[in-house]
């Protein structure tokens, strides 16, 4: 039994998801190797080598891997995966993109978005937007698994594995990177934040989201949004928390002007403490909130900012 863990990073820093993947992989085997594929990633490989429980890091450092194009990454992972019984990647837009390609090329079924490792062949995953939890067993020769990182603790950083260079170059003429528009924010990322404050349709428009800024600054929080707020065009989709957006589980989640549709709850109900601020006291969000505050958010948000 051995697990190949695909490192989550942006060519600049290693993401905390990688530590969580390693923690999840320990449920299968103690023989864990991390693959870092990217461009200019020597420091990221060194960071991955420090994760407790990692036996070795393989670094595939080449311009062809810079943008995580799935055609290139899948071919690389298929080749490296030959030596392992399991491949784990985060269920991020990177992992979701290339992992099913890996599974298909290896002719095995994939297990998506696991929240628990029962044993080396049995995993727990949500279905129907988290309204049901399935325990599934795979008898495939290789287990190709994406992991919902928010459901696992992060492995610590007191290891000292070696880094091995891999000069395999996999590239495809059929696909190329054009451009990216990345959200620039000094705030933590949604999937890594300890505190999240999210706005919903009750915010009324995109401009009003500035009311969340001061509170987010004071709490060191990331700012999220419900699908209703995204669909209404208030804020960009990368802020969406929910079944079809990001799945989060921070220490504190503050839902402002969010009614609590099933699809939103699916993305945040594993938060440690949930606070709901809504003027409708019958809103379903209150049925999952530890602390509910009924009232007009336009009055309450400035008060909250002042009180912190």
């Amino acid at each position: 039994m051995s697990v190949l863990v695909y490192a989550e990073h942006d060519n600049e820093s290693l993401k905390i998801e990688t530590n969580k993947l390693v923690h999840a992989a320990l449920g299968v085997s103690s023989d864990i190797v991390v693959l870092v594929a990217g461009s200019g990633c020597a420091a990221i490989a060194e960071a991955a080598a420090k994760i407790s429980g990692v036996c070795k890091v393989i670094l595939a450092d080449n311009a062809v891997y810079e943008h995580q194009l799935p055609e290139n990454i899948a071919d690389l992972v298929v080749e490296v995966a030959a030596d392992y019984s399991h491949v784990f990647a985060a269920a991020t837009t990177t992992g979701k993109n290339f992992m099913p390609r890996v599974a298909a090329l290896l002719d095995v079924a994939q297990i998506s978005d696991i929240i628990k490792v029962e044993s080396e062949d049995t995993f727990v995953r949500p279905i129907y937007a988290g309204n049901a939890i399935a325990t599934v067993q795979s008898t495939e020769i290789k287990k190709i698994v994406t992991v919902r990182a928010a459901s696992f603790d992060a492995a610590a950083n007191d290891g000292s594995a070696s880094v091995e260079l891999l000069d395999t170059i996999k590239t495809s003429e059929k696909s190329s990177y054009v451009s990216a528009e990345l959200t620039v924010s000094a705030r933590p990322e949604l999937t890594a934040a300890d505190v999240i404050i999210s706005g919903g349709r009750g915010m009324q428009n995109g401009e009003n989201f500035v009311l969340l800024n001061g509170i987010a600054d004071k709490l060191g929080a990331a700012i999220g949004a419900s699908r209703a707020a995204v669909d209404a065009g208030f804020v960009p989709n990368d802020m969406q928390v929910g079944q079809t957006g990001k799945i989060v589980a921070p220490q504190l989640y503050i839902a402002v002007g969010i009614s609590g549709a099933i699809q939103h709850l699916a993305g945040m109900k594993d938060s440690k403490v949930i606070v709901a601020i809504n003027k409708d006291e019958e809103a379903p969000i209150f049925s999952v909130a530890d602390y509910g505050l009924v009232g007009d958010l336009f009055d309450l948000l400035p008060q909250l900012e002042a009180a912190l």
Binding site: T92, S175, A180, L182
Partner: peptide, 16 residues
């Protein structure tokens, strides 16, 4: 040309 919703924002790729 496909513009993709990714975790950090948007990415555009060109596919044959």
């Amino acid at each position: 040309n496909v513009t993709r919703e990714i975790d950090g924002g948007l990415q555009t790729v060109k596919l044959q």
